[in-house]
């Protein structure tokens, strides 16, 4: 993973002032990371992407370059995660859909972590991730893919760190089951 890009003060000030070029530069620099989150975590990723960026730009004046997050990319990721949680809570009574045939997901005889070349294929892993309940998927994606620490997740979800750890463990177990391996 490449390091999070750090902003120089001038473009950030310009973006804060509403300079369209500076904001476009922000989108170019940080959009791919936000998009990866939205695509994996929101059933309406395009809407979520716009929503996140509107939120980021309206909160930009709160960003302190030398805060403990230390980077604009990290700060944007936090904003994005919070926004996605908000969106999830709003629609939490809506059920999730899984149109994929379950038998394609579950291959009981297969070793879930072994593919043709001994590695789990990305496509299969993404498919199984998509089939996880949203709350579990969010934790797995943020922690294991986007490297958010359990402390940050604890703050995000409003639960103790120990709860985050146990939820992560359960989420991975569910993921393994979806991949056709581990016991319930």
């Amino acid at each position: 993973m490449r390091p999070l890009p750090s902003p120089s003060p001038a473009p950030l000030a310009a973006a804060l002032a509403g300079d369209p070029d500076a904001r476009a530069a922000l989108l170019e620099a940080h959009g791919p990371r936000v998009w990866a989150l939205c695509r994996r975590l929101d059933p309406e990723p395009e809407d979520a992407y716009q929503d996140v960026w509107l939120c980021v730009c309206s909160e930009l004046h709160h960003f302190v370059p030398d805060d403990r997050r230390g980077s604009l990319g990290g700060w944007i990721q936090t904003i994005a995660a919070r926004r996605l949680v908000d969106r999830h809570r709003r629609r939490q009574v809506r059920p999730l859909f899984r149109a994929e045939p379950l038998p394609e997901l579950v291959a009981p005889d297969a070793d879930p972590t072994a593919g043709a070349e001994g590695a789990l294929s990305r496509a299969r892993l993404e498919q199984a991730l998509a089939a996880l309940p949203e709350a579990q998927r969010r934790l797995v994606v943020l922690h294991h893919v986007h490297e958010e620490g359990v402390d940050a997740l604890s703050a995000l979800e409003g639960v103790p760190v120990g709860t985050i750890k146990s939820r992560l463990s359960r989420a991975r177990a569910a993921l393994l089951r979806l991949l056709g391996g581990a016991p319930a």
């Binding site: 993973m1 990371r33 998009w35 990866a36 892993l125 993404e126 490297e147 991975r172 993921l175 991949l179």
Partner: peptide
């Protein structure tokens, strides 16, 4: 599994 998850890209072209 954790190793495989860590290999997933954290950026995707918009």
């Amino acid at each position: 599994l954790q190793a495989a998850l860590a290999q997933l890209p954290d950026e995707e072209p918009v």
